[in-house]
Write a protein that binds this DNA or RNA. Structure first.
Ligand SMILES: [Mn+2]
Ligand SMILES: [Mn+2]
Ligand SMILES: [Zn+2]
Ligand SMILES: [Zn+2]
Lengths: 153, 153
DNA sequence: CCCTAAATTTAGAATGATTCTTAACGGAGA
DNA sequence: TCTCCGTTAAGAATCATTCTAAATTTAGGG
């Protein structure tokens, strides 16, 4: 499953004449197998354990490359850094405004909804639409409990 | 119109016991009357022309305050800085991935759509939803022309 | 109107995520 | 295998944003 995904993603890069270096394969594989929405720093810290020669600059270079080829998306959670997510299945995100935790939301309506938004946007602004990101902000269950907001009635 | 909007926004702040300093009124008024999605730096440069004692730190402090009270929203356009928008009428944004220009999109379906998303999100993640932001990415008409992508068929 | 406590402003310093620079390295086509 | 040129690593540089501390100002009460 993840193997297929990796092969598929590498194929896309190869078809664009992007060099498949070990670092790029490693980082791409990391993102395919970790749906934790990590920052560049977090990816770097984890990969360093197996390969202490990898550089944070390469992590930044690579995630930017992957974003450019639409294999990965960028997310902000308010902690000042950018987080990354391999975008295999279309989904959107909820971010906890208290602790920054990011959760996935998969909805069947999502693609139809996206098409609607694209159409409205195109008609109203004449922009050529590439992609639509939905970001919901709120409080995660843990933070609701911590802040005494559970069952608030 | 803008006068009402300003009075209304100030009322909200006052009801939260937020001190109404001249700087806060000025910055709030600036955002109500300029729907250009400016960065803190842009706001500062403009306001300095009439009041050269205002500080960039105050601009940052104030926009954060306004965001906290949901009067203003934050936007990123890829230029590295945060942009701000007085959020009087609900709407969403398209960002040009080439030049960073941000355009507004107003859609009647918007609020119903938001409610749908909120409901799905709540059911699936148990997050307490505060707000939903939709961001579309694409190419503005000018950049389409510049890149020779107009009428691509 | 005047006082006072507490919040706010200012200017400049500090922070920290990201980008840049440069020399060494290594993919991949011929 | 050879060679070109894109990529990597390490550290320096950048720059948006936050922090600090002293001076100023707001808003409420007398
Ligand atoms: Mn995700
Ligand atoms: Mn707007
Ligand atoms: Zn949380
Ligand atoms: Zn553009």
């Amino acid at each position: 499953m993840a193997q297929n995904e990796l092969a598929h993603a590498l194929e896309i890069l190869k078809s664009h004449k992007v060099r498949l270096t070990p670092q790029r394969k490693t980082i791409l594989n990391y993102l395919i197998t970790h749906h934790t929405h990590p920052s560049a720093e977090m990816i770097y810290e984890d990969l360093k354990q197996h390969d202490d020669s990898i550089s944070i600059a390469t992590v930044y270079n690579t995630v930017r490359l992957l974003v450019d080829y639409h294999l990965v998306i960028e997310l902000k959670n308010g902690d000042g850094s950018t987080h990354f997510d391999y975008f295999g299945q279309p989904h959107y995100h909820v971010v906890c405004e208290n602790c920054g935790k990011i959760a996935d939301v998969f909805a069947p309506e999502f693609s139809r909804l996206n098409q609607q938004l694209d159409e409205i946007t195109r008609q109203q602004t004449h922009y050529l639409v590439n992609r639509t990101d939905i970001e919901v902000k709120g409080l995660c269950p843990e933070c609701q409990a911590k802040l005494g907001l559970l069952h608030n009635r």
